[in-house]
Design a protein around this nucleic acid. Structure first.
Lengths: 206, 206
DNA sequence: ATATGTGAAATCTTTCACAGCG
DNA sequence: CGCTGTGAAAGATTTCACATAT
């Protein structure tokens, strides 16, 4: 039981564990082991045990881990044992596809607000949510106490929209724009960029 | 000048460097430094110098790096100095959005083939490309010598489709299905999963 | 004066290997 | 016996700091 912060690299693996365990749960597994889970997701058994041991003793020696129990624990650790409302900024093709993605709702993430700066898009209803103009963004996000935003605006405006999001009290940004965002250190950013992933793989191709 | 393979963690940063440098190029920068580039993308100057030095001496002491030269070099290193044809498997909402995404073409990635198992989708034309039935997938991919696939099928069938892709000679998979794929070690997989990213951030929220 | 390229040092991460418990 | 939890060891990665070049 340490009081040092747990490395971010460990946090990054927890959602993968949760994903695999939820899959096992659907398949009716009652119990699993670090070895079995590791084989499923391509991570060593020792690493899984070490990662989990940062948070408590969830397993039983000689037996393994209870799948439903571990799912519950991981959800608590990751704070996904609740519903998170999110704001979506950018109602273009990508934004629309994201607003309609079922996976978010299934995992407790709800698109609550949608914004766009194009007057033609404002007033449209996407996935039952009306598109609002960005001029009302800061105060609307504030009044809804929303902490998570998804950014699907063009790269040229991504940083200035981000600055507004920070003013609005947003603390986590899922950024689909192909640009590195500059944010204060209490704001978290994750990047979704297929080009970056593809370029990382072509390196290894002939 | 080493002959050990360069760590994958270094490869993973190169596309970020390229992205920032292309951005600088558009803005008309002729020269940059490891310090300037590092501030742009939140990576230390020393790390950038060390990473680049794995591939050669691209900079000039006292001066910095020529932006256009470094862009050219990085494109060669990452093998994105050419056009890559790709196969898209899964013509649902997400697949359609991806097929229409301009960013791929702009970076030399071309969606050349689209497959789906749903007879209703077969024959549809998406972004000027006809949707083919998955029964013809293996031979069609082989005859086009395509090495990269994007997977936007439901999780339940992702592994079996992957097995077919491997038979077809695919060596790189960009996987949008929320499941870890099992592949031989000469096949590369990258994951695009917004839920995983969101869960990684909620950990840090109150 | 300024910024690279790079060994050496520091730090971080993973794996090992085994005591201990069910 | 089997599998966890965990210190210690090994390995990988990052940072430091400076000789060197322009």
């Amino acid at each position: 039981m340490n009081d040092k912060p747990i490395p971010d690299i460990v946090i990054g693996r927890l959602p993968r564990y949760l994903q695999a365990l939820e899959h096992m749960l659907e398949q009716g597994y009652a119990v699993t082991s670090s070895k079995e889970l590791g084989e499923q997701i391509g991570i060593s058994a020792a690493q899984i045990r070490k990662d989990l041991s940062q948070y408590g003793e969830f397993g039983k020696q000689g037996k393994g881990y209870s799948v439903p129990f571990l799912v519950t624990q991981l959800k608590q650790i990751l704070k996904v044992d609740r519903i998170w409302d999110m704001a979506l900024i950018g109602a273009g093709n990508l934004g629309k596809a994201i607003a309609n993605y079922q996976g978010f709702t299934e995992h407790g993430f709800r698109v609550a607000l949608i914004f766009d700066s194009d007057p033609q898009k404002v007033g449209q209803v996407i996935h039952q949510i009306p598109v609002l103009h960005t001029s009302t963004m800061i105060e609307t996000i504030q009044s809804h106490h929303i902490k998570i935003a998804m950014l699907t605006v063009p790269a040229q405006v991504a940083q200035s929209v981000t600055n507004q999001l920070i003013q609005a009290g947003i603390k986590a940004i899922l950024n689909y724009a192909p640009i590195t965002l500059s944010v204060p250190e209490d704001v978290h950013v994750q990047y979704v960029d297929p080009i970056i992933h593809l370029q990382r793989m072509t390196y290894y191709l002939d």
